[in-house]
């Protein structure tokens, strides 16, 4: 996928290790030890990983400035500061916040979520079980019969939301509010009905769904 990450970290041990690790996972990484000249790299950056404690301008200031100039580039704050105030302050402009010590797998998972959310993933083709999904064309093909599956706009919207949040458990509230844009009222069956119809179209056996998993009492999940 070769997404370009801009990584700002003043600690050499963490910086060298994490940039190596990210490179190994197939990202292009530019690692800076301070916030100087950061704007030069921004044009070609897909995502910024920002440490808060930086020499000179701190991560908060840099992040705020970057978000103002490049609102379409996601920022993930990486910090050893864990107080709620710091988190809240950070999330004013940043799109996600992780505290050290972080698990590299989790960091990558979050990076991928952000990249998807901001449409930075260059690849628009997803293979899921027997489905080939071409996101930019909004086309889903059943490989077994090589026939196109036609979804309604709402159904596609729901399915797309799942695909943007792979492996995450999404609660009914989350899905409903993301797709319909209004707050979910407990007991509302609309979403369930839509998911049932969606399953009828994409699942091999709608009574035993494999693609859209039900997590009982909590929500749904699509694994990739």
């Amino acid at each position: 996928m070769n997404n370009k990450l801009l990584y700002m970290e003043d600690d050499l041990e963490i910086g060298s290790w994490l940039s190596a690790d990210l490179k190994q996972r197939g990202f292009k990484v530019i690692w800076l030890t301070s916030g100087e000249n950061v704007a030069e790299y921004m044009e070609e950056t897909d995502l910024v990983i920002l440490d808060i404690m930086l020499p000179g301008l701190d991560g908060f200031s840099i992040g705020q400035r970057l978000k103002m100039d490049f609102p379409k580039t996601p920022i993930l704050l990486l910090s050893a500061r864990t107080s709620i105030e710091d988190k809240l302050h950070g999330l004013h402009f940043a799109d996600d916040y992780m505290t050290k010590p972080f698990h590299p797998d989790e960091l990558v998972a979050r990076v991928e979520v952000l990249l998807r959310r901001f449409d930075k993933i260059s690849q628009h083709f997803i293979q899921l079980s027997h489905l080939h999904i071409y996101k930019n064309q909004k086309r889903i093909v059943d490989v077994r019969s090589n026939s196109e599956i036609l979804l309604t706009a709402k159904q596609f919207h729901i399915f797309d939301y799942f695909l943007c949040h792979p492996n995450q458990i999404l609660t009914k509230e989350q899905i409903y509010e993301a797709v319909w844009g209004e707050s979910y009222i407990e007991g509302d069956k609309t979403l369930m009905v839509h998911i049932r119809h969606l399953r009828e179209k994409i699942e091999q056996d709608p009574s035993n769904p494999q693609i859209i998993e039900t997590i009982r009492g909590i929500g749904y999940r699509v694994r990739q």
Binding site: I14, D21, R81, T99, K100, D105
Partner: peptide, 19 residues
């Protein structure tokens, strides 16, 4: 806050290298 930060930095390195 500083102690917490100062302890977290080496912990991150340990975590990273063990990974």
């Amino acid at each position: 806050t500083n102690i917490s930060h100062d302890l977290r930095t080496p912990l991150t390195v340990i975590r990273g290298h063990s990974h």
